[in-house]
Design a protein around this nucleic acid. Structure first.
Lengths: 212, 212
DNA sequence: CCTACCGATCGGTAGG
DNA sequence: CCTACCGATCGGTAGG
């Protein structure tokens, strides 16, 4: 049987935990909170998990795994000859979707990782590193193909991009803008910048420079 | 007297609380943790503060006030005729400095605001809104002066910029790059983008497009 | 999975 | 500011 009853119940507990961690933080979530939402008594949780840390570990690991898979799937569905900008847009859309609408597991990562016990962080960090390297490769490709300028610091770029996406979990409201549209705007800012091109700048700022 | 002893002690408690909240989250920080660091017994905290929420409120409010003042001071120190790009760099440097090296109060904001009790959030949000509007005005100026393209969505730009800065609290290590250098890179990415300009793109991608 | 409970710790208070 | 303590709650366990 691919879905024994106990596995389903375990899922229910993890779902409840992911949501609670994401809303109230780690220490702010009690075993009883999780148990109530999952429809059982507090003590019963320990039939499925060894400890509260154990639950947190699984929530965090599942969260990274899901966003990683979503990004890989999105890029993998594109024709191999796609431009970097298309791959970027696909990855940004996937990341934002997991974070903002699919994702108690992913948003729990954003919100409680820093407060997790050291052992939990250490394990989860392996997955995070792999995901970060995946983004690093994507950007490297873009630079090799010439679509990212040669003198751009890819580490900073990656951290800025992931940072601005992750922070969206604190302000995004689904009624104001659909995620694909948001993803497109993110990509435009990063790729084209918001300033004028150098020659446009040359003209418009001459007066101001002369004055100072 | 401008610094009565009790005010100094109160400061010591707030300093200890800001650091503890930033490291361990709100629920993860106990009154005793704070008291020990501040050099007193747990119960004594209540001679200075009404409740744990009260301490949190002050830490969060001070954090926003400080980063706001730092940004205003940095921009205010520039000649009035300064270009938008210079003002932006000054503000980014100020924000990052408060967040990454001066700032348990500011980083506590990043890390525990979401888990604060509703009443605390409500009050702190007023300061946050004012600070956000200050950034909005700065960007508006830049767009009016022509240094930001007319078709850029300033709300998204502001949220991306602040988001990528705030997220730096999770990865920045002072031994790898000084803050002014980091600030400059942030500004470059945002203003110039990382891609080629349109006409450069026109040439380099022609072959790729024909293939697909 | 539940019942019943433990040892520890928490935020907060009384009285000085 | 300290001492001494409260009521409540916490993560976790034993036994079924």
């Amino acid at each position: 049987m691919s879905h024994p009853k106990s596995a389903i119940t375990k899922q229910r507990i993890l779902d409840a935990a992911a949501r609670a961690f994401s809303l109230n933080g780690y220490a702010g979530t009690t075993i009883n909170d999780i148990a109530m939402t999952a429809g059982m008594q507090g003590g019963s949780i320990y039939y499925y998990f060894e400890s509260k840390d154990d639950i947190l570990q699984e929530v965090l690991d599942v969260g990274i795994t899901r966003v990683f898979s979503a990004a890989r799937l999105a890029i993998g569905s594109l024709p191999a000859s796609s431009a970097f900008s298309e791959k970027l847009e696909a990855a940004v859309t996937a990341h934002l979707t997991m974070l903002l609408q699919q994702g108690d597991y992913t948003s729990a990562n954003i919100r409680v990782f820093e407060q997790a016990p050291p052992a939990v962080k250490r394990q989860n960090r392996k997955l995070r590193t792999a995901y970060g390297e995946y983004w690093g490769q994507l950007l490297s490709e873009g630079q090799r193909s010439g679509e990212i300028r040669k003198n751009v610091d890819l580490t900073i770029l990656r951290l800025m991009l992931l940072g601005s996406m992750n922070w969206a979990v604190t302000w995004y409201r689904s009624d104001r803008m659909p995620i694909p549209e948001l993803a497109l705007k993110f990509c435009e800012v990063v790729l084209k910048g918001v300033g004028l091109s150098d020659d446009q700048l040359e003209n418009s700022s001459r007066g101001r420079r002369a004055r100072s």
